[in-house]
Design a binder for these strands. Structure first.
Lengths: 225, 225
DNA sequence: AACAATACTCGTACAATGTACGATAGGCAA
DNA sequence: TTGCCTATCGTACATTGTACGAGTATTGTT
């Protein structure tokens, strides 16, 4: 707001003022969304974050939708591809764990990733690699379709659930569950009360553990057919 | 549903002008969101849809967030609970299929249902019934936690995927896939091209079939422990 | 060196949104 | 009647995405 727009400053007053690029917009957008969430994410705040004025952004990107497309593709680019020199189970395990980690870092991403209709390059490369992993292992096209559908449904759904939790296993978690528990009477919801108090609120509980259980269950159920 | 709390049934100038209620707001909101999607859903459009002026709504509901909370709880209320007189597998199958159907009717719902922090009555009743179903079947608390986590991750994730598709198995579907296929060169993405052209675009293909496969795979992997 | 074309940056403005703040009108009790 | 409560609404304001065009810096051509 009150920044002196250095008309002077031959070398630009210390800060390098290289031209903005679409990529810098996207990277800044991802960082901002991580910080304040997708709902609070606005063009004006993004402009502040990357230190330009709002309308500058529109010279590098057509509109907000395109920014979100770029953010999604960026997230895809962060996910490790299944290594092609391993058996399919190990390879899928690796990319699945990586995907979980990435989606946990960007809680806003999961609902968007499956709902974009114009995939970027990284998105296509990702799907290519996963499909290739199954096909090379001898999965039929049908078996591949089955496998990919269940697996990704689980991964996206799990990310969705995990995104709600404050911080798995921590103090906030207990506080959160306790607040929920407070809203229900044990008479009306006996199983819910039991589950919350005698399981979720117990010291060792960590929702994160459910991931490996589910992932292994699904992988156990898949075969090349 | 068809409650009629008309204090005075006497006519009101031709059109029945019974007072607005919070429930009518919610029901109208769900219908409107089904029609135009959650992003386009605004208070003004909702007001038009239920034939009042925008600010009238705020006399029955504190704000837009509360409307969304109500919408989510309404969606939960539509899902069949697992019948308590069946074995756990059949009971869970029924509620899962119902859930899929309901979430397909309300494509905007899945990302919201897992991210609300103030559950309504129907939401609590739903979780109570599902937990009770597992517990009554002899599942330990831990096994119940595992089971519920995988299962719902799959259901929400599947709903997310299904929400993207235009209309499964139809003409639009093929058109959609063809458009995607157009964006990728078969040289760069051979597996993606193969999968799309020789499987997805094939006459008999219907993504909806993946649901039963995944659901059964998961149920097969669950046990009371 | 001069100058035109181009590439960026930004100020201003507008329509659409959520919603705060009353102003109103009808019903009912006294 | 008078006064109060409930439900509806008109107006207004801050916040959003972004169209338009005016500035400034950079580059290419001569």
């Amino acid at each position: 707001m009150s920044r002196d727009k250095s008309v002077t400053a031959s070398n630009d007053g210390g800060a390098i003022r290289r031209p903005l690029t679409a990529e810098r917009v996207i990277v800044g957008a991802v960082a901002l969304a991580d910080e304040i969430g997708i709902d609070a994410f606005t063009i004006r705040k993004l402009a502040d974050a990357i230190d330009v004025k709002p309308m500058t952004i529109y010279h590098h990107v057509p509109n907000k939708e395109a920014i979100i497309d770029g953010m999604v593709d960026y997230v895809f680019s962060e996910i490790d591809l299944p290594p092609s020199d391993l058996d399919w189970r190990s390879a899928v395990l690796i990319r699945s764990r990586s995907m979980r980690q990435v989606l946990a870092k960007h809680p806003w991403a999961s609902p968007l990733m499956e709902s974009r209709t114009s995939p970027g390059a990284a998105t296509l490369q990702h799907h290519e690699a996963v499909l290739g992993c199954f096909r090379s292992a001898g999965f039929t096209l049908e078996a591949t379709g089955h496998a990919y559908a269940v697996l990704d449904a689980f991964l996206y759904g799990y990310a969705l659930q995990e995104a709600t939790l404050p911080a798995t296993g921590g103090e906030e978690m207990a506080q959160f569950a306790a607040q929920i528990a407070h809203q229900m009477s044990p008479d009306e919801f006996p199983h819910l009360a039991e589950f919350t108090i005698e399981y979720v609120l117990q010291p060792g509980y960590d929702f994160g553990n459910e991931f490996e259980f589910g992932l292994n269950l699904i992988l156990d159920g898949l075969q090349p057919k």
